[in-house]
Design a protein around this nucleic acid. Structure first.
Lengths: 209, 209
DNA sequence: CGTTCGTTTGAGCCCCCTCAACTGATGTGG
DNA sequence: CCACATCAGTTGAGGGGGCTCAAACGAACG
């Protein structure tokens, strides 16, 4: 995570880059020559299998780094969720960055740490939780992400997005959400808007008992 | 990853700690006051659900950091797989470490990056792969980890361990391994020793087509 | 009004889980 | 040396949760 103040100073060491909504600007398997810092917009990070199975591994937003965790080739793909602005750095340019921002390594470390904690929680979710538990966890995650802690959630993605994020199919996502509604745990006010009616129940469900 | 040379120098800034095999020395949810560096032995990192469902999220060995990625409380548990030696640091002691090892942040970053790549691959595995694909991926992972690239693999864990690592049950692990043997992709020479008979087929299976 | 695309709903099936019994290796005491 | 207990692994039978395939629905848009 980079301060907004620093972002303008960053510009002189990088190429600024605008990406259209929906464009996949990092392709898994391609040579990882560059890395990026998101300056505005949201990014979907995912992995694909040859037959089209998709797993979303996370999201990135303004201030986040992208592509540093790669080896010789990118280990994931990244797609702009909306209009996107990026700073692109050559891999070797990282040293310049380090000179100019002495604490950059510290910040990188903090971001990586946070992501690693997230990743562990998601491995538990993907490996061991039922569909109901996954959806409950997902809804609470959205809830906690919200600045106002409002119990009305505006889903940031389609059913396909949720399914690929939770390791389910769109049908199961739809059915499970409706089941949770029947049980009065949530109310689906619009397709992309859900009200949490019973937070305690959702929390016990999310943690699995 | 810390150089063996440096490990002795580390000692004066930390408390040395010996842990018995099988002991859980980090408990999820407890206050994360300390962090650790493994100096010898192997560690299993996992998360638990109230009803006992377990997901192993990774392993750590000599030179690896442990517990840095936590917030106020540990987000995971850690168990010694065999006799284990650790250096324990107070959370605040990290600053001393940084002074003494100026490039420690860089090393930490590299380790975190590698783990993050691993984590993404495992999310794809846990979210989208079938049992056959998971086992094939697992066997190839063991194969690549081996220094000699020998096609004979000595499994480093029991069926329970494999199951908790791959998000399956022990029965499915057993059945699937035997199915792979019937199809001549592997040979189960002993319970904990497997020979890879058809690497190309295992690789296409692991990547899912 | 018709098309398109995302979502919902239904029916059926399959993969994996659950529960249970069996096998085999290891160890222990008589 | 053998009877017995224990525990990891295997094998079998059955059930269920989530997937697949298909059709209906509904909102956005020309």
């Amino acid at each position: 995570m980079i301060d907004p103040d620093d972002m303008s100073r960053l510009a002189q060491y990088s190429h600024r880059l605008a990406v259209m909504a929906g464009k996949t600007f990092i392709q898994e398997g391609e040579p990882a020559n560059d890395f990026f810092i998101v300056t505005s917009g949201h990014v979907k990070i995912f992995a694909l299998m040859p037959d089209g199975r998709r797993q979303i591994t996370g999201f990135a937003q303004s201030g986040d780094f992208l592509g540093l965790a790669s080896g010789a080739t990118y280990g994931f793909s990244a797609e702009a969720l909306g209009p996107l602005a990026l700073c692109r750095f050559s891999r070797t340019g990282l040293n310049i960055l380090k000179r100019e921002f002495p604490d950059i390594e510290h910040r990188l470390m903090e971001e990586a740490s946070r992501e690693l904690v997230q990743a562990q929680k998601r491995m538990l979710l993907l490996g061991r939780k039922t569909a109901r538990e996954r959806l409950a966890s997902f809804l609470l995650e959205q809830h906690h992400r919200s600045p106002t802690r409002e119990i009305v959630i505006n889903l940031p993605m389609s059913r396909t997005g949720i399914a690929d994020y939770l390791g389910l199919t769109i049908e199961t996502v739809s059915r499970t959400l409706n089941a949770l509604q029947r049980e009065k745990l949530i109310a689906i006010t619009q397709v992309t808007q859900i009200t949490l009616l019973n937070l305690p129940a959702l929390e016990t469900l999310a943690r699995g008992g």
